[in-house]
Amino acid sequence: MSNVIKLVLLLMALVSTISYAGDSVNKTLALNGASKVVIENQRGKVNIIESNDENVSVQGELDDKAQAFIFEHSGATIIIKVEMPNNQRSWRNDNGSNLTIKIPNHVRVSFSGVSSDVNIEGFKQGVDIKTVSGEITASHLNNIIDINSISGDIESKALSGKIQISTVSGDLEDKNSSGRVFIKSVSGGVRSKSNASEILVETVSGDIDLKLAAVDELDISTVSGDNQTYLSLNENGSVKLSSVSGDFDIKFANNIEANFRLKTNAGGSIENMLTLDKAERGKYTPNEKLNFTTGNGNGSVKATTVSGDIKLSKL
């Protein structure tokens, strides 16, 4: 084959992977051993779902302001990228991309965007999802999962493995997760109905509403957000609660056997409805403390707050 023919074929292959503003896209690449797919779409909507074969496909329409669309292999990675101009002011009053991407479910997926909404479901090898203001919907994902949005809401369902979900001002709702879950929010509200055995929740002012199964470890830290939690504590399990002014309302579903250490420091109150033990109030300072043990005391429940209230009860 002559060098001229080779050059022509190379140019044809390159052109086949590049599309432009507002174009319809219907492209497919064989996986060919790739273990990761990296997707970048600045705005619009992206639906990422599992495929039924060993191909990666992209269908839909590109952003009106797109400069190019790249869909190519790079070593063990497939790159899907909608290239946009650097001047974001020119993006206004135009439609973003609307894409459906199908990927084999044994491939790890990474997505990044600015105002792009993303729905992702059905992957076994974990995902890494980041947006600024876009909303994220994630379901039936396994392994190492990292989901992050600044102001967009996050909704997750049936995640399993080592899970980290974080937002600044968006609301976060998690359903039926399992494994180890770390949830972080600044001012967004947190709601979780989880089967996870280990749960860590951090907020600044966002309220927390947890409905948990049997846990080995629960750690909640907040500044001013209020917290309501329903849970069962496993044998030798641990609960740690801390706040500045946030209130804790903890309801236990089982006959908990644990050592309790509860303390408020500047005006908060302790209400114990598990036993007849009552909190002691400081003689010279408006603090309260309460230490008691139930059953064999193998578990541990520690709660401290500066001015918030602590309430313990049974379901």
Rank of each mutant, 00 (worst) to 15 (best):
G170F: 00
I163R: 04
D174S: 11
G170W: 02
S156I: 03
N195Q: 12
I163V: 14
E173K: 15
L172H: 03
V181F: 06
T167K: 15
S156M: 13
N176A: 13
K184M: 01
I183W: 03
T167Q: 08
L159Y: 01
G179N: 06
S177G: 11
D174L: 14
V168L: 15
A158H: 12
S178M: 12
S185L: 11
S156Y: 03
G170Y: 06
S192D: 06
A196G: 11
G179A: 13
F182L: 03
R191A: 09
I165Q: 13
A196E: 01
G188N: 07
I183G: 04
V181M: 07
S194T: 04
L159W: 12
G161I: 07
S156Q: 09
D171P: 07
V190S: 05
S194G: 07
K175V: 06
R191K: 12
G189M: 06
I165N: 01
V190P: 03
K184C: 03
G170Q: 05
A158Q: 15
K157W: 10
S187G: 11
I183C: 08
V186G: 01
S177E: 14
R180T: 14
S177W: 00
N176F: 09
S177Y: 05
S169M: 12
A158C: 07
K162H: 04
N195I: 02
S177L: 05
A158Y: 08
G161K: 00
S185K: 07
K157C: 08
V181H: 03
T167S: 13
V181E: 05
L172S: 12
S166F: 01
I165M: 06
S185R: 04
A196I: 05
K175W: 03
K157V: 06
I183H: 00
S185M: 07
I183E: 02
V186C: 01
K157N: 10
K175Y: 14
S192C: 12
K184W: 01
T167A: 15
V181W: 02
K175I: 07
K193Y: 10
L172W: 03
G188W: 06
S178H: 08
L159H: 04
S192Q: 09
L159P: 02
D174I: 00
V168N: 05
L159V: 14
T167L: 13
S192W: 01
I165E: 02
S156W: 04
A196M: 09
S178Y: 04
G161S: 15
L172N: 01
S192A: 15
S185Q: 05
S178F: 02
S156V: 02
A196S: 04
I163G: 09
N176H: 06
T167E: 03
G189I: 07
S169V: 01
E173C: 05
K162N: 15
Q164S: 14
I163S: 04
G189Q: 14
S194N: 10
S166N: 13
E173H: 13
D174Y: 01
K175F: 09
S185H: 10
G188T: 10
I165V: 15
S160H: 07
G188S: 10
I183R: 08
E173V: 06
Q164A: 15
G170V: 09
A158T: 14
K184D: 00
L172R: 00
Q164K: 14
S177I: 05
D174A: 08
S178N: 10
D171S: 09
F182A: 10
